[in-house]
Structures are given as structure tokens and as C-alpha cells.
Design a protein around this nucleic acid. Structure first.
Lengths: 260, 260
DNA sequence: AACACTGTTTTATGATATGAAACAGTGGGG
DNA sequence: CCCCACTGTTTCATATCATAAAACAGTGTT
């Protein structure tokens, strides 16, 4: 999992430990982290004490296990306000939300994963949830495939070289040939469509957002329950609204203005 | 701001630097952080290189300034799923949302600040936004005052000893006497109400959530535009729905069950 | 009561973080 | 146009600080 371990300085060790608290896992023990990371229990213990004093982790006083601290919420406000994508993009998301009444979300690539960085939930009773922070591999679901499809060839090559493809649901495309074809198709038609690749019964529609250089920044997506996705007129309506919004969004990010 | 500085080990220095990226500030320079924290520029530089390699910060290649990294989004999924409050409470939030059609949010205290950890936005056109990660001091706004009012006396004493009260808007209560009276009133009536203390034109309604020991865990709140808050029937309706939901929520967290 | 687990503290040793100073770019103003 | 003042970055000898093994101290189970 982690690199050659050992030979890391103390800060790197602390960060490696913090990264472990990304996993959806209620808590970690010291010896557990120790064997997982290859650091001695004494080292893990000492680092966790420091992280605890800064509230990056908390400790259950009963079983003394460590779990993630609420301090991470504190970074979100700055993250959102320094992020042009969210600042500029939210109004396009609102347009799509009010025109489709479906859950709208915005996604980026972070360390080989799709991650949701902004959302507007559908007002309907039957709706798709897509909380901020939700993540998935880049081959499962329209939003993820859209990000991958419009990435550079270099990024794609590197991604497939370093990633093992394992199905998330029965509908996940795992055959490399079929996946390449799908990515090609997405680039051709300018949007991605998926059904149940990540969550059974849940479909997804996604269009790319580019910067002034034409590099992909994000994917703007709709998460739609299967029942509504199968209504042809609703689907084609959603496709039109979404692709049109993503084009305006890209323009707002500088695409086509020749700005440098 | 920070403690005695110096005499910190390298991990603590790295964390102090990370904390600086909580501030709503687009970017930091090395010498800027150096003078702010009292570390030598060389030290700041070296630590930022490490943080950068782990994507905790990014660097603008043009002006070489550092800004916060997207990796912080990655912790949210685990944070949400390890947090009983969100797992258990979201359904109560949905009840309140569909009964009031106003923006519902859930808040906790983290390091002497109120911080929003979950939300459901109003479906109306004129609505209050309250993104996850939004923060404010504990004396401004209903959600914050509610958290403070039901905190232990010890916490309150310590809070007022270490906090300087500065107005956020013209409506913020800054007179200690008036504030104490307000906190007492909130405890008496079981909910908090505010108008424009944090954002002009925006009102707020908040009720406490307790654990089995009767300690406050969170405040469940409504953010309501001033125009709708002034409709008496709507307001009293919202108060009833919110306080009733917060009581069910507390019960779901174990209050009154005698469970240990 | 003995065992097999935890998390935690201690310790001498040697690796590694440190700040001053020098270096290397950059942008603005006279 | 050139200087100056400001960046971020690298170097390097010094001494601090992180390290892992082992002992310690709790805990729950058998």
C-alpha cells in the first residue's frame, strides 16, 4: 500500500498515519497501525499523542482506540472559498438543479479517485444522495468515467498501470477493452451515462468542465434514480440541460476566451 | 495566537502550519508563515515540501505560493460514517426539512467554534445557505448560542475567559450581561432564536441534542430568511417541529433510556 | 489465576531537524 | 535600465530529537 516505508522522516510518518484515517473504519489501535505501516508501536503511540493534542484524532477513553477528529471539518470553509470551481460553479449547479429537480454534484480527481466536492440534493422524495466527500474509483459511475475519459493520455496510462480494477457492483465495467471503448464513446458524445455501476438502482449522467487550456477540471453530474432515468423524455431533457450548463461553466472558467 | 511556539517538535510544527490553512485565505508565502509562526523560513520550506508531496497543500507554480490541498475532502466520508450524530440524525433532519421547507443544519463545537457538520438546503428560491464546514463564534447566531447555553458551566467559564467578543454584524450581542441573560433564556425555553447576528437578513432557530448523560452533543437548527421568520404562524410551526425533532433525536442518542 | 492481548513509558543510541547564511529568481519604481 | 527589496530555495555543521526494543501496566477471557 504505502511506499517503501521506513526511511520516512517523522512528519511523513505522521502524515501516513493521518492518511489511514481516510478509510471508512470506525477506529484504529496502535499495534494495528504499527503492523499496517511498519512503524514501531512506540513511534505510532508518540505520533498519535501529538495528533490527539491537536484534535486531528480523538481517543475513546474506554477502549483507548483512536478515531478521526472533527478538526477536518474546519478546513472545508477555506477549501470551498479558495476553490474557483465551487465559487464559480455553484450557480450553474443551481440552474441544473432547478431545471431537472435531480441531485446535482461536482467532482474532481484526487489521488486516483473521483471525489464529490459540491452538491445540491433533489427536492423529490425518491432521490439520490451524493454527499460532499463521497469517493469512488475512476472506472465506476458516469462522473468518474467522465473525469477519466477527458484526462490526458499520460494520466490514463499511468492510472491503468497502477490500478487494479475490481467490480463495485455487478454492473461495473471491468473488462479493459470494454472500458476503453466506453471512454472513447464518452469523449465522442461529450457526456457519460451509467446505471448501477456504483450503487444498484442509481443512474448517473456527467459532463466535463474544462479550463482555458482545455484541460479537465471537474465533472458536473446528475445522480438519478433508475426509475426516472428510464423515462426517455426526462433523460434527454437532463442531457441537454447538463451539457449546456457544463459548456457555460467551462466558458466561465476561461475556456475559449484565449486568456492566458 | 499559537502557544509558546519554538520548543515544538517537527510534527507539531507541521501541524501548526496545517492549521494556518484553516483560515479563509487564498494562499500563504513561506516568509509570511515563518514570521507568523516563529519558525525559520528554511524549516517552513522543508515542512511545506513534505506536506506538498502528500497533497495536503498545493503550490501555485507561477508565484510559488502555497494553498490548501484537496486531500481534506477525502476525510469527510469516514468522518461522516464514524459520526453517530450524522448517521442517526440525518433522518430527523429530513423530517424537519420536509415539514418546514427551510434549510436544516446540524452543528457541533470544535475548538471554541460552532461548525456545521450536516445540512439539508431549503427547496425554496429564497433560502439560507449553510454549507458543511461553515463556522462562527459561539456567541453569534442561534445555533452557536444554543451550543453554548447548554454547555457545562466549566466550559462556559473557560470560554469567556479565553475569548474576546467582537461583533460579527450590528446585531451581534456583545455585552456580557445581555449575553448571559440570553443564554439563561435559551436554557429556560429549550430553544434559541436569533436574527441577523451573523448575516444580515438571515434568522435562525436552534434546539439542543443530548447524549444519555444529558451532555450536549450538537444543535439542530433551521436557517430562515428574515421575511419568513417574521410570519408568526410559520415561526411557531417551525419551533414546534424543531423542538420535537430534537427531542426524538436526543432519545435516539440514548437520552432518558438509562443506558450505560 | 494464568494468559494473551491491549496501550504506554523508558532508554541509550544515532539519525535527522535545525537556523544562519548564501543563493537564485522576480517584480516594481526611480 | 538597473537597482533594490522582496520572494522561495539550498547548503551545512551542530546538537537536538526521533527511534525501536524492552519492560510496564492495565484489560478481558478462558
Amino acid at each position: 500500500m504505502t511506499k517503501d516505508t521506513q526511511k520516512l522522516n517523522s512528519i511523513e510518518k505522521a502524515l501516513e498515519i493521518m492518511l489511514k484515517f481516510q478509510d471508512i473504519k470506525p477506529s484504529w489501535g496502535i499495534r494495528e497501525l504499527s503492523t499496517e505501516l511498519g512503524f514501531s508501536p512506540a513511534t505510532v503511540q508518540r505520533i498519535l499523542q501529538v495528533l490527539k493534542s491537536y484534535e486531528f484524532v480523538r481517543q475513546n477513553p474506554k477502549n483507548r482506540q483512536y478515531f478521526i477528529g472533527n478538526i477536518f471539518y474546519r478546513f472545508l470553509e477555506n477549501l470551498n472559498s479558495s476553490n474557483d470551481l465551487i465559487r464559480i460553479g455553484h450557480k450553474f449547479m443551481e440552474e441544473v438543479a432547478s431545471a431537472t429537480h435531480e441531485t446535482v454534484h461536482l467532482n474532481i480527481i484526487e489521488k486516483n479517485l473521483r471525489i464529490c466536492i459540491d452538491n445540491i440534493e433533489s427536492p423529490k422524495v425518491l432521490k439520490a444522495g451524493m454527499p460532499i466527500g463521497n469517493q469512488s474509483p475512476l472506472y465506476a459511475g458516469a462522473s468518474a468515467k467522465c473525469l477519466l475519459a477527458f484526462s490526458t493520455e499520460e494520466f490514463q496510462d499511468n492510472y491503468f498501470k497502477t490500478t487494479e480494477i475490481t467490480p463495485v457492483t455487478g454492473n461495473t465495467i471491468i473488462q479493459p477493452g470494454k472500458l476503453f471503448k466506453e471512454l472513447y464513446k464518452i469523449k465522442e458524445q461529450g457526456y457519460a451515462l451509467s446505471l448501477g455501476e456504483r450503487t444498484p438502482g442509481l443512474g448517473s449522467l456527467s459532463a466535463p468542465v474544462f479550463n482555458y487550456k482545455g484541460q479537465i477540471l471537474a465533472s458536473l453530474s446528475l445522480a438519478i434514480p433508475e426509475i426516472r432515468l428510464k423515462q426517455k423524455d426526462h433523460l434527454s431533457n437532463c442531457i441537454n440541460i447538463l451539457t449546456s450548463a457544463s459548456k457555460s461553466f467551462s466558458k466561465a472558467m476561461g475556456l475559449g476566451t484565449g486568456k492566458f
